[in-house]
């Protein structure tokens, strides 16, 4: 294994078994394939994004890497330590944030929570006090003047900052974050993203983060792996991935329709009739249709799409043509968005 690699996952497979109740006594066994052979590597000192829609397998991958879930097969290492065989060593070199909205004692202040978890992780005395103070400063909770406020009074943004501070308590070389900006307001999310980039590029820490936010991945990540239905479908730098849609543009149409059912038919007609990848998601009371079109066919694709929409009695409120994004890469590769 190259010494430049901080995190390595090889062919990770994980199935969840659950039971669905049928009647009073009956139950049916259901197997969900969460990971179907996930492999990737994260270089030291980079911000690596695991990008995918809900249920793609991001959290399952992260939990395996944090030693909180055993894979059915495959291996994963953090700085050369196997996450199954050397779990206790791995736990000493990683900092983890799994959810931002909970995970602390509600009746303790932010500072008290950090001190408690610091002691749990083996820190003590003046070193712990100094470390906690430094982290409160770093994540901006001191500046906000809320370090001595009870956790239950924290906003989601403050909770996210505290969660990042806990992940940094032991000054770990590897930081693993699951959806660190989920639900945050834009200023808090931007602040957190800046901190992550700083940690990686100025302090040399390796950051693995999951997100379903394409924009965030483009802003923060040095490299990205797109995961969908338990499989990595593409991996590379943001620019490399965008090259996959080179010569294409993204056409976005915001439409209003009363018949949700007709959207599937619209998507099918665009994909098969016009022959371009397309996705439709609900947004602000209407629907956003995203089409990845060859640059030289924008006019034709747009007019044919408008005709389809007109046939389905959809009212088009806005049309935008944009440079391709990671979302377009995802749409082109999967034919849908799901984000």
């Amino acid at each position: 294994m190259s010494s430049k690699i901080a995190i390595e996952a090889n062919d990770l497979v994980k199935n969840y078994v659950s039971f669905i109740r049928r009647g009073i006594f009956g139950r049916r066994r259901v197997v969900v394939e969460a990971l179907k052979g996930v492999s990737f590597g994260v270089l030291k000192g980079e911000v690596f994004g695991l990008l995918g829609p809900n249920g793609a397998g991001k959290t399952t991958t992260v939990k395996i890497l944090c030693t909180l879930l055993l894979p059915d097969s495959g291996t994963a290492t953090i700085l050369g330590y196997d996450v199954v065989k050397d779990a206790s060593k791995v736990r000493r070199i990683i900092g983890v944030s799994l959810t931002v909205e909970k995970g602390f004692y509600w009746k303790l202040t932010g500072k008290e929570n950090l001190k408690y978890f610091g002691m749990l992780y083996g820190l003590d005395g003046k070193f712990l006090e100094d470390r906690v103070n430094m982290l409160l400063e770093l994540v901006g909770l001191r500046k906000l003047g809320v370090e001595d406020k009870l956790y239950e009074e924290y906003s989601l943004g403050m909770k996210a900052r505290l969660s990042l501070a806990r992940a940094l308590l032991t000054d770990p070389p590897v930081i693993i974050l699951d959806e660190p900006t989920l639900g945050l307001d834009p200023p808090s999310a931007r602040c957190l993203r800046e901190m992550l980039v700083k940690l990686a590029h100025e302090e040399g820490k390796t950051v693995l983060m999951t997100t379903h936010n394409m924009f965030e991945a483009e802003m923060v990540c040095d490299r990205v792996a797109i995961i969908d239905r338990g499989e990595i479908i593409v991996m590379g730098t943001v620019d490399e991935l965008k090259k996959r849609v080179a010569g294409s543009v993204g056409i976005e149409m915001f439409v209003l329709t009363s018949a949700r059912a007709s959207l599937d038919s619209i998507a099918l007609k665009i994909r098969e009739g016009i022959g371009v990848p397309c996705s439709i998601v609900g947004e602000n009371g209407g629907y956003r249709i995203k089409i990845v079109s060859p640059s030289d066919e924008v006019d034709e694709v747009t007019s044919r799409t408008l005709r389809i929409l007109h046939d389905h009695k959809c009212s088009v409120r806005r049309i935008e043509v944009k440079e391709p994004t990671l979302e377009d890469v995802f749409i082109k590769l999967t034919g849908r968005t799901g984000f």
Binding site: C66, T67, L68, S88, R91, R92, I94, V96, L98, T99, E101, K102, G103, F104, Y105, W106, F117, L120, Y121, G122, R166
Partner: peptide, 21 residues
Amino acid sequence: IGALPYVLLAPHRISTTLILS
């Protein structure tokens, strides 16, 4: 409260953490 994963991530066995603390 969602803190179980973070307690498990402490560098001790969970039984040691639960009992000693």
